[in-house]
Write a protein that binds this DNA or RNA. Structure first.
Ligand SMILES: [Zn+2]
Ligand SMILES: [Zn+2]
Ligand SMILES: [Zn+2]
Ligand SMILES: [Zn+2]
Lengths: 161, 161
DNA sequence: TGATATATGTCATAGTATAACATATCAACC
DNA sequence: GGTTGATATGTTATACTATGACATATATCA
């Protein structure tokens, strides 16, 4: 799966499609995709960048959907727990998943200049770390892979090869 | 390089050796390995687990080496910046590097039960993510790889293969 | 409808990190 | 040795991130 995030795309339909597919996934699993949760997911989709919990909360507050931190954190916890949103540990921030209904292990490319974040895919189970883990008897359950650098838009053009 | 952290070893000499080699590296690079910085490095070495900045600060305080957060954060920043210590983003905590004078890209195996952390090595430059980055024109400068799971000591023995 | 689980509203507090500025120490040069 | 600029430390204050606790409301299902 190619990363999104550094290329333009049909953003309106991107948002609508993502909301619709998560809506369906929740219905299928008996999860409640409540107004606050849906709105938080939309807020994250609108930017395709990682937002801090308090940035999300500010938006919710301005829309009358909640004013205290737990409101934002609960919605983000729900979305993260079910894989619709990912937390970027490096930034203490959250981003909507690029393909929220597929089972996957996300990896991220984070631009240190413009803060754009692209989600890509890894397979931690076949890298060098997996071999070391197997050798030492460590059982990997999940992995975080976050690469920091310069996105194509922020790189000086003479460096682009 | 094999990970350390899940196996016993000669801890006294491990600490002494690490301090000595960092001391030499600092001297060679014109860096000041001051008492606070050295003590923070030792504190982290003593445990071979990730300590929060405020845990480090508590120890400094009890030894009369500093009582305010910036003291701990500055020492940790120095040590991290020069690669003698790594930050575990997942835990907001810091751990002494397992081989502080070699240039390397660290990866971590974090036990969710006992919080032990083992440092291993990756080569992000040859994984799947590197290919995607190259394709999209993203220039990776550094990468964080943190795997979470159960260490050999915390795994039920009947699961160990 | 009533019982149970799940979600929200709100207040309070814990945990992590940095800005800003004064003082002290170090390093290098005259 | 004293001057000077850079680096490090001490200290106060504050900003940012996250969760505990408990009351109320809403949804789910027998
Ligand atoms: Zn979009
Ligand atoms: Zn950029
Ligand atoms: Zn040791
Ligand atoms: Zn363990």
């Amino acid at each position: 799966m190619a990363p999104i995030g550094f290329a333009s795309h049909d953003h309106n339909s991107c948002i609508a499609d993502a909301v619709k597919s998560v809506d369906a996934a929740c219905a299928a699993s008996g999860l409640q995709f409540t107004p606050v949760r849906k709105r938080v997911f939309e807020i994250l989709l609108e930017e395709h960048r990682a937002l801090g919990a308090y940035e999300v909360l500010d938006r919710l507050r301005s829309e009358g959907l909640g004013s205290q931190p737990p409101v934002a954190y609960r919605a983000l916890d729900f979305l993260t727990k079910h894989g619709f949103v990912h937390k970027i540990e490096r930034l203490n921030a959250f981003i909507a998943c690029a393909h929220p209904t597929e089972k996957h292990t996300p990896a991220f490319l984070i631009c240190r200049k413009c803060s754009a974040v692209a989600e890509a895919e890894t397979d931690i189970a076949q890298g060098r770390l997996a071999g070391i883990a197997a050798d030492t008897g460590f059982a990997i359950e999940r992995a975080i892979l976050e690469a920091e650098g310069l996105c194509p838009n922020c790189r000086p053009s003479d460096e682009k090869a």
